[in-house]
Design a protein around this nucleic acid. Structure first.
Lengths: 172, 172
DNA sequence: GGTCACATGTAAAGTGTTACATGATTCC
DNA sequence: GGAATCATGTAACACTTTACATGTGACC
């Protein structure tokens, strides 16, 4: 991820973190605790090169891809991707809830929908600006997120309705 | 997750692992390296109780929820869920690929589609049997997975077509 | 006898988050 | 002066995977 970010343009660790938070966060997050040690390691391995580039008296290190780093990045970009990994606590809770705990299931579905709508809203807000992005694939990826969240949204609504409209005897 | 599984029925660590692999794996996975130590910890904390239940000379430990464990489980089931976490390497690669690397982007999309179709196929295979599951929510969760994967499938196809049909100049 | 599924576990390595610490600059 | 942002970093902890180790039982 760091190599990919640095191919877009040379950046400091702080800027990489910002870029992640503004772009890949939804499908690939990273914290300072990962980024700074990793920058050192990548430099030790000769894949990137750091250069002091202070702003006033505020120290700052801007990293650039080395030719070797670009090589490694390109090879990685061509390898088939690892299967996606997901950790979805909401679904897990739903899975464990029994038919006699419909109230709780409904509440969980509503929580999930709130979260999902919020995320979808954020992506949709970004979309107009993303049309100006230099690389078409970045817009593509954003739209994949929008499509997936919209599907989840639809499913959540349907599930909620099914629980709400369910047979009378279960309703009490 | 362990508490939830044990509420369905008392199980050994081995059986819990099997249950996870057959059900929640797509949105919540677990390895033996997590399960066995965790079973010990949960027993130490009094949330579950293990009992030797050998099959022949093959030792085996079956764990049951204690009242305290059930209490903790119910409280957890009612807490609002943590936001889902995703790690999707394929999207990350796509994100970093430039418009002049369309061949690679296409290959990655195809890899993703193969993976996605395979996963979707597995879920759809399960679906008929899942209608007989004791809890409606389990079927609900399965269908959420099917819906999400179908959405991704559609998006992947569309993205592939756009890349294939697009003129050499970048297409927005 | 060999292979596979049953069954439990540990050690090491790898991955990742959180909280903290430090200091500069900008803006109100 | 105080708060927010820029900027870098570490330490502790939590989490997870992988590989290995051990032994039983069923089936061919």
């Amino acid at each position: 991820m760091i190599l990919g970010m640095l191919r877009i343009k040379p950046m400091s660790g702080y800027e990489i973190k910002q870029a992640v938070d503004q772009s890949t966060r939804f499908f690939w997050a990273a914290s300072y605790g990962q980024i700074y040690p990793e920058l050192r390691r990548l430099e030790r391995e000769g894949l990137i090169k750091g250069e002091p580039s202070p702003r006033g008296a505020r120290r700052r290190n801007v990293y650039t891809l080395t030719p070797k780093g670009e090589e490694v990045l390109l090879a990685w970009l061509q390898e088939p991707p690892a299967p996606p990994e997901l950790r979805f606590e909401g679904l897990l809770k739903l899975f464990f809830l029994r038919d006699d705990e419909r109230e709780t299931a409904l509440a969980q579905l509503q929580s999930m929908r709130r979260q999902n709508s919020a995320a979808l809203g954020r992506l949709q807000e970004i979309e107009p600006a993303a049309r100006e992005l230099p690389q078409g694939s970045q817009l593509l990826v954003l739209r994949s997120g929008i499509a997936a969240l919209q599907a989840v949204e639809g499913w959540l609504e349907q599930a909620e309705h099914r629980l709400t409209d369910a047979p009378i005897e279960a309703r009490r």
